[in-house]
Design a protein around this nucleic acid. Structure first.
Ligand SMILES: [Mn+2]
Ligand SMILES: [Mn+2]
Ligand SMILES: [Zn+2]
Ligand SMILES: [Zn+2]
Lengths: 151, 151
DNA sequence: TTTGTATTTAGAATCATTCTAACTCTTGAC
DNA sequence: GTCAAGAGTTAGAATGATTCTAAATACAAA
């Protein structure tokens, strides 16, 4: 049985889209649902695969369009690690990203770009900033330490 | 009259290349010279154009190869701003980058990634980090303030 | 010299993304 | 309800940056 009233994320989606003069569509709902379900910073390609499993007719072009719409209306951020495909994150708090070279996962890091402000030279006005870190996450660091001590 | 002994950057280049098992070549020398001459974070394309003006037979593939060799032997860093082409920087000190939306220039910012260390969650090991900032540089901010007050 | 390897080169291939143009759906006069 | 206008979706083409490939060239050591 489907609830009469929209779920909370759907209501939020509807309002945000409307505020940007955009329509609520099944595809945008699906793409957002994918991002909210597993917060692992998937690429557009990965979003496409996951969305397609629920909505077989959705196209890659639409996934790009939806991700763009969601980004525009402030529900999703693009994340740029490495040179490869952009990743997408539905966590809109001011945070940074850490890409683990061991497991490949992209972790949210509670490091606000606000913290960088005092380091800037006089007169510069920052409108947007991005911090990307690379290395070993706690789990992978522990494993690699264990492996090397075991020899 | 050309000096008998190699210039300082050439000596350094020779040593660094040797240390990585790479040869000193005219193309690598030229590409490094381009980067040292104007430290404005050019893209590979821009490096190609500048190098070509001195060395008309150099190819784009070689510019990519040389930039790669210079990066490997620690004389140059790749800088990733936006989604576009990578930029190259011969300043190997721990610093960050600021892309001005007014004039398009990429400025070095004296913000060491070391400063981020204390913000990391326990157990994470950072091997590399990059901070990219966007906004208005001091000059452009001043101009835009002047323009808006003049109405 | 000779010979093996590193480097350069042009062009093809690849990858992510954007664009195009046709089709479909929604909305809001009438 | 009908219908036109606009918004959204779609497949596939086009683009831009980079990497790959294979042949030619330059080098360095034997
Ligand atoms: Mn995130
Ligand atoms: Mn720099
Ligand atoms: Zn890990
Ligand atoms: Zn500027």
């Amino acid at each position: 049985m489907k609830s009469e009233r929209a779920t909370l994320p759907d209501r939020e989606l509807n309002d945000r889209l409307a505020a940007s003069g955009l329509r609520f569509t099944a595809q945008r709902q699906q793409v957002l649902a994918v991002l909210l379900k597993r917060r692992d910073h998937p690429t557009a390609e990965e979003v496409f695969i996951r969305a397609k499993s629920q909505m077989p007719d959705i196209s890659m072009a639409t996934v790009y369009n939806c991700l763009d719409a969601l980004t525009q209306c402030g529900l999703v951020r693009q994340v740029h690690m490495d040179r490869g495909a952009a990743r997408y994150c539905p966590n809109m708090s001011d945070h940074s990203h850490f890409r683990c070279e061991g497991c490949g996962r992209v972790h949210d890091i509670d490091l606000a770009s606000e913290a960088l402000r005092p380091h800037l030279p006089r007169g510069f006005q920052v409108s947007h900033s991005e911090v990307s870190l690379h290395g070993l996450c706690a789990d992978c660091a522990r494993n690699s330490a264990a492996r090397s001590s075991a020899k």
